[in-house]
């Protein structure tokens, strides 16, 4: 146990010494890793925020039914009964034309204009939530509802919501693809720096071998180096994403005000930050492992 601890402390000390010995090239490598990682991390933030916006939008599966002008309260009542007995409708809400007009005038601040209208231009309407939300069922339901008496128009927003979902899904796929490619790039960057290090420490490796160093002992400082480099690179990536979200926030809030809503960019969550650092550390370690194993095998052959 004591030996094990001593070995690890030695390796850690050697790693830090090594990094501080060449501060500029270490820093450049760290920035290369950090910026590489900030791309997928930043994309994750963008997607998360887009998903957030999408989920705050009114329920896209709602169907609006507008009555025609001739509908009497009795007609409305009859339709109410029909709708509430249907099993393919989960929820119904009736909005009479007067309520609708009041709501609109308040929302848009058009009270004066509305007061001057000779006649309420809005129809009575229903907002219903279908039990099944897939496209086929909704289409079927819409065409059925269309045929009820005094129904002027049936409007379903599902197409728009499905397009949005598809775009978000495409975003997620792109993210996965980009993250995968950049993960390989990161392992390659690490692998390369480690290879350079090994070539400058060739004598040390050879001598250590001759006086009883195990492969594990020889590998350890390089693995530490790779992992630490990955971790620090991950921290830089986190910083890049954080600063970027901070820089974009004022503009996004301005935009949100123009749309009469409030919205602020959420930075990386605690879990995402932890995952970012963990993955970057792991990738650094993997890159180092490959480089050392290859180099050791090559030294062995001589």
């Amino acid at each position: 146990m004591k030996t094990w601890l001593t070995h690890h402390l030695q390796a850690l000390r050697a790693t830090l010494t090594q990094m501080l010995a060449t501060p500029f090239s270490s820093l450049f490598t760290l920035f290369a890793i950090g910026i590489t990682l900030s791309l997928p991390a930043g994309m994750a933030v963008m997607l998360d925020n887009a998903t957030q916006v999408a989920s705050n939008l009114p329920n896209p599966n709602e169907i609006s039914i507008y009555m025609d002008d001739n509908a009497t309260p009795a007609d409305i009542k009859k339709l109410q009964t029909t709708l509430s007995t249907r099993t393919d409708i989960a929820h119904t809400q009736f909005v009479d034309k007067q309520t609708a007009l009041t709501q609109i005038s308040q929302q848009l601040g058009l009270t004066r204009l509305v007061n001057e209208l000779p006649k309420n231009p809005l129809p009575d309407a229903w907002i219903i939530t279908p039990a099944d939300t897939d496209a086929q069922h909704i289409t079927q339901l819409v065409s059925t509802l269309q045929k009820f008496p005094h129904v002027a128009l049936v409007q379903a927003d599902y197409k728009w919501s499905q397009r949005l979902d598809a775009i978000l899904q495409l975003g997620h796929d792109l993210f996965t693809l980009l993250a995968g490619i950049l993960a390989v790039a990161l392992a390659a960057i690490t692998s390369n720096t480690i290879r350079l290090q090994i070539s400058t420490r060739h004598a040390e490796i050879e001598v250590s071998r001759l006086i009883g160093a195990t492969d594990r002992y020889i590998r350890r400082p390089f693995l530490y180096f790779g992992a630490l480099q990955g971790l620090l690179g991950g921290m830089i990536a986190w910083g890049v994403v954080f600063v970027s979200t901070q820089l974009l926030t004022p503009q996004v809030q301005h935009l949100a005000t123009l749309y009469a809503t409030t919205f602020s960019i959420q930075p990386l969550s605690l879990m995402q930050s932890a995952a970012l650092l963990l993955i970057s550390t792991a990738l650094g370690w993997i890159g180092a492992y490959f480089a050392v194993s290859r180099s050791l095998a090559r030294i062995e052959k001589r």
Partner: peptide
């Protein structure tokens, strides 16, 4: 490696780390 820890090696070219 464990075998080598039980032996001391002296080389003509020293193999020191400079």
């Amino acid at each position: 490696p464990y075998l080598r820890r039980n032996m001391g090696l002296v080389f003509q070219d020293h193999k020191l780390l400079f």
